[in-house]
Design a protein around this nucleic acid. Structure first.
Lengths: 337, 337
DNA sequence: TTTGGAATTGAGAGCGATCTCAATCTGCTA
DNA sequence: TAGCAGATTGAGATCGCTCTCAATTCCAAA
């Protein structure tokens, strides 16, 4: 590795001057700057980020904290898209991504300790629980952060307009003649699950539909199995609903499977609406009608917000509400005639 | 941030001794070690990885290099699973993952420059092209590396038994009575694409089936669209094949779509076999018959190999061939009766 | 009580950069 | 030609840690 010392020796200037030239400071004469840059380039010099970080107390790395119960990590169909958007944007600004876990070496630590240990300039927290104490600690810490799918005044947050998304879903089902609409809720303590449950209630209210408790089934986690099991419970009801709104696409896909396994058809017997519009939604049969969240945009916005916060220390915290969109495919059906 | 100096001052020992105690060196008395550890813990001390890296020339980070033409990055249905396996394993050994791109700040650099800039201890190269010059440079460099889906004697490599996988696929189709078997090849310059094309040829040979050139369609990239377009070309043939073996699941799924769009059915008119067994494969209709690669295992093995290489500098390079498995679902059909 | 080797501890250099402050070098004015 | 401001350049500290080598302490054997 060629260091700044090597360049200094070769050019005859001091390391100070070399450093200045390399960083394009104004107080170096054009002539020497040109010379130094040339030599540095010829020698194949590039800075050592570690050494630089030590003095500057800035690493140009962003931490990714991925809290989730499913244990699927990067395989998550929605959040992997978010991360990719985040990554591409962050890289534009020269930031690299580091995954933050709860360990330092082999010792169990908190996320925040690990983030400080690595010296990341900021973190994005993905898929967090509403009241995870570690996330709370992190949000309240001075470390710049942006948190997805949580509401807070103490940091930057981004989430989709879940409430409106639910309204769109119910509007759609209602317009198709459905009145017996059930909800497969995610009650894993996530903000998203709560919001969508709330949005479901509000939307039913809008049409004066009564909310039958037995029509709200606790799906637990946002998983295929949860959706499958929840749907089976709905199918056992005396008065089976004609439509189901699931809190996520994964759940909806599980629900459709349960409907098929019961010898019924979606959408002929039961219409199903999901939430997220993951890649899979368009490929399954029937194509899943769902509420699209713009995952890529979520990632990009998160990067922008976080980097702004890092650069302007006293920037106020922002809350960004992203638009959602109804995507009509084949899992919902008009039952008016 | 509490540093080693703070702990030294508090305990009255020198930083040398504190460092030793913290790192569990044998040449500190039990008494002082215990005291130092206690105080450090009470003060909330943990090491600064940056400073440590600067002296040790080791960062305990692994670089992830994700070269692919599709631009989908972490959304890749197969490689995101590999990365997740790699990540979980690496974390067990105290390594964090950093994504390596081709930039340093805003300047275009090579992957290897970036890797050195970040000081990663090793890199995993995913989804690389057979003869990408940058990947080649990296493989030949002294930086420990493990490369997936490439063959090389100059570094550690891991890939699935593609040839055998093809044999399994053709065995299956042949046993169902198919003789007119086409291949949607990936000719994007990937090792995998080449191997599978070769494996396809070998398997046909085994049954003495002639290889009709028009039955081998150049799919280009491993993408849904490639599969779709390639299938359309096959459908235009005078003698349409009864079975298609696609070089990847994504392509196979695109092919099935093309078959449907042509008013035909998979598997009733044309049987389709994929390769990879991505998550989607089990959820689409018809469920995709495919050759399963163990992506998670691939990631884990990669981590083990890489970390071994890092720890034992003069370890020989390994080539690991992973087993594959035929997964029969509904996209293939017996046509003997 | 010496003594010598092992155990324990500490001083100081070094990792590769940035940054402050001081020194030197310009060129222009008086 | 002296003086001075502004432009260039450099010396040395610093970031937080590890590591080498030297110094000190300890304790059992002589």
């Amino acid at each position: 590795m060629v260091t700044i010392y090597d360049v200094a020796k070769k050019t005859g200037f001091s390391i100070t001057t070399v450093s200045r030239a390399l960083n394009n400071y104004p107080d170096v004469s054009e002539k020497t700057k040109k010379l130094i840059l040339e030599v540095a380039d010829k020698m194949g010099y590039f800075p050592n980020s570690i050494a630089r970080s030590l003095t500057m107390k800035k690493t140009f790395t962003l931490g990714v904290i991925f809290v989730e119960d499913l244990g699927i990590g990067m395989k998550h169909p929605f959040f992997s898209v978010v991360i990719e958007g985040f990554k591409q944007r962050a890289e534009k600004f020269g930031f690299d991504l580091v995954f933050i876990n709860r360990f330092i070496g082999e010792d169990r630590k908190s996320y925040i300790d690990h983030a400080y240990y690595r010296g990341v300039d900021g973190v994005i927290v993905v898929c967090s629980h509403y009241d995870d104490p570690e996330v709370k600690k992190l949000i309240e810490s001075p470390l710049p952060s942006v948190v997805l799918d949580v509401h807070s005044d103490q940091t930057n947050v981004i989430y989709s307009n879940n409430i409106y998304g639910c309204e769109l879903a119910i509007d759609h089902l209602y317009s198709l003649g459905h009145q017996k609409i059930a909800h497969i809720a995610a009650t894993d303590g996530s903000f998203t699950g709560k919001e969508r449950l709330k949005g479901f209630g509000l939307a039913l209210d809008k049409y004066g539909l009564t909310i039958d408790d037995s029509y709200i089934v606790n799906g637990g986690l946002f998983s295929y199995e949860s959706g499958y099991n929840a749907m089976n419970r709905l199918l056992k009801l005396d008065d089976v609903p004609t439509a189901v709104f699931a809190s996520s696409d994964t759940m909806a896909i599980g629900a459709i499977k349960a409907i098929k396994d019961a010898g019924l058809s979606a959408p002929d017997d039961i219409s199903v609406v999901g939430f997220d519009d993951i890649e899979l939604a368009q490929h399954i049969t029937p194509g899943l009608t769902t509420i699209r969240q713009n995952a890529e945009l979520m990632g990009r916005k998160a990067a922008d917000l976080l980097i702004n916060q890092i650069n302007d220390e006293d920037e106020d915290f922002s809350t960004i509400l992203l638009p959602v969109e109804l995507i009509i495919r084949d899992s919902t059906k008009d039952i008016t005639n």
